[in-house]
Amino acid sequence: MTEFMLANQMLIRPSVFLVVILFMGIWEVRHPRKMLTQPKGFRWINNLLFTIFNGLLLPFTLPILAVSSAYFAQQHQWGLFNLLNIPEPIECLLSMLLLDCLIYWQHRIFHLVPWLWRLHRVHHADQDIDITTGSRFHFIEIWLSMWIKIGAIIIFGVSPIAVLLFEIILNARAMFNHSNVYLRLKVDALLRKWIVTPDMHRVHHSVYPQETNSNYGFCLSIWDCWFNSYKEQPKDGHHDMQIGLSQFRQSKEQSIWKMLTQPFRGK
Rank of each mutant, 00 (worst) to 15 (best):
Val16Asp: 07
Arg192Phe: 02
Val20Lys: 00
Asp126Gly: 10
Trp115Arg: 03
Arg173Pro: 00
Gln106Gly: 12
Ser221Glu: 04
Lys231Glu: 04
Arg173Ile: 12
Val187Pro: 03
Glu141His: 11
Val196Arg: 09
Ile12Leu: 14
Val203Met: 12
Asn8Lys: 11
Ala7Thr: 12
Pro160Cys: 08
Ala125Val: 06
Ser214Pro: 07
Asp188Tyr: 10
His138Arg: 09
Pro114Leu: 03
Ala152Pro: 06
Leu245Pro: 01
Tyr71Met: 10
Asn177Arg: 03
Ile161Ser: 02
Val158Met: 11
His239Tyr: 01
Asn177His: 08
Ile150Arg: 03
Leu11Arg: 07
Ile168Glu: 02
Ala7Arg: 09
Met24Cys: 06
Pro87Val: 09
Phe60Trp: 15
Gln247Trp: 05
Gln242Ser: 04
Ile222Ala: 07
Cys101Leu: 13
His239Glu: 14
Ser251Ile: 13
His239Gln: 14
Gly217Ala: 15
Thr51Glu: 02
Leu220Arg: 07
Ala152Asn: 02
Pro209Thr: 07
Val196Trp: 01
Ile64Ala: 02
Met259Cys: 07
Lys231Val: 12
Leu144Cys: 11
Ile140Thr: 13
Ile103Val: 15
Arg121Leu: 06
Arg184Asn: 14
Gln247Glu: 10
Gln38Cys: 03
His201Asp: 12
Trp117Gly: 07
Leu80Ser: 00
Phe23Lys: 03
Glu253Met: 13
Leu183Pro: 05
Leu116Ser: 09
Met175Pro: 00
Ser229Val: 13
Ser229Leu: 09
Gln74Gly: 13
Val16Tyr: 08
Phe42Thr: 04
Thr212His: 10
Leu116Lys: 04
Gly134Trp: 06
Ala174His: 05
Cys219Ile: 15
Gln38Trp: 02
Phe53Pro: 00
Asp236Val: 08
Gln106Ser: 15
His239Leu: 14
Met146Arg: 08
Leu62Pro: 01
His204Leu: 06
Trp117Met: 04
Asp199Ser: 15
Pro39Lys: 02
Leu185Ile: 10
Met96His: 00
Gln106Thr: 15
Arg43Cys: 00
Pro198His: 09
Leu185Ala: 10
Ala172His: 08
Trp27Met: 07
Leu185Trp: 03
Met10Leu: 06
Gly25Asn: 03
Leu245Asn: 10
Cys225Lys: 13
Ile109Pro: 07
Asp224Glu: 10
Ile161Gln: 08
Ser221Lys: 00
Ser69Arg: 02
Leu22Gln: 00
Asn228Ile: 05
Ala174Arg: 00
Ala70Glu: 02
Phe50Ile: 04
Arg265Asp: 11
His201Leu: 13
Leu58Cys: 04
Ser251Leu: 12
Phe227Ala: 00
Leu99Thr: 03
Thr197Met: 05
Gln74Leu: 13
Asn85Cys: 04
Ile169Phe: 15
